[in-house]
């Protein structure tokens, strides 16, 4: 069974003045363990789609179901709690609490979930280490590079043990090396821990790393392509792609 289903999702902004069709009849399914990117030109509806799936925006028509639970129509309070316990978020910027250290930012979400203290500590340390930040536990966001900040954000998203992680243009503010490094980390988590990722991007090198590529045009799904499961050959191929670009 799909962990995410969107059924005939439509979103119209400003229906009364100058209507903008941000989503047109989008029906999609996502399986556990997928590593999917949503691509498309600016204004094609990528953010709108991710916000719908993440329960941050409400569709005019259609609905979203996560693991059999319909989140469309949930009450505000219920929805916030649902997001906390089921969805990991990584945004393009402003992901972290500036007055908290990397370690505190990661622990914070588990604190909101009322996890055990000992579990919190263990998991925060484990995730930050996995993200290559073992020396940055006590650094505040300002003392971290853009790439490091985004890796803290991924660690934070993972810390809550979500069903999947939504990342809207997570690499948009990063240089190529940092972007690829972030993708490495995400890919590693996807492969090793079967974490489901859905991320949007403009960046062809990032798109190349995905195993499913959804292309949006003007609020509608234009293409939905799946690559065969990663084989040795393919991973070599993507690495070659990296080299040729840098």
């Amino acid at each position: 069974m799909a962990i995410i289903t969107t059924q005939n999702l439509s979103k119209i902004y400003n229906p009364d003045t100058i209507p903008v069709h941000a989503l047109r009849d989008v029906s999609l399914e996502f399986e556990e363990g997928e590593f999917t990117t949503v691509r498309g030109p600016s204004g094609s509806g990528k953010t709108t789609l991710l916000n719908m799936i993440g329960g941050l925006d409400i569709p005019n028509e259609g609905f979203v179901e996560i693991d059999g639970t319909r989140i469309t129509g949930m009450k505000d309070r219920e929805l916030i709690n649902f997001r906390l316990n089921n969805i990991g978020f990584v945004f393009q910027a402003y992901n972290l609490i500036p007055v908290f250290t990397a370690y505190e930012n990661v622990s914070f979400i588990m604190l909101l979930q009322k996890r055990e203290k000992s579990e919190m500590k263990e998991r925060a340390e484990e995730l930050l280490t996995a993200m290559g930040l073992s020396k940055k536990f006590d650094s505040r966001p300002k003392q971290l590079s853009g790439g490091e900040q985004q890796r803290v954000a991924v660690a934070r998203a993972l810390a809550s043990r979500p069903k999947f992680i939504l990342a809207d243009e997570p690499t948009a503010n990063l240089d190529t090396d940092s972007a690829m490094n972030l993708l490495d980390m995400m890919e590693k988590m996807n492969k090793e821990e079967n974490v489901t990722f859905i991320f949007s991007t403009h960046d062809q090198r990032v798109i190349d790393r995905a195993r499913r590529v959804i292309t949006m045009v003007d609020g509608a799904i234009d293409k939905d392509e799946r690559k065969s499961p990663p084989s040795k050959g393919e991973s070599e191929l993507s690495e070659q792609g990296d080299d040729s670009l840098s």
């Binding site: 941050l56 916030i80 906390l84 969805i87 402003y94």
Partner: peptide, 16 residues
């Protein structure tokens, strides 16, 4: 505003 929006997005309750 951005930071507070982020906190609400990741699941910090309005009460908190």
């Amino acid at each position: 505003m951005r930071e507070l929006g982020m906190l609400l997005a990741i699941g910090m309750s309005k009460l908190r």
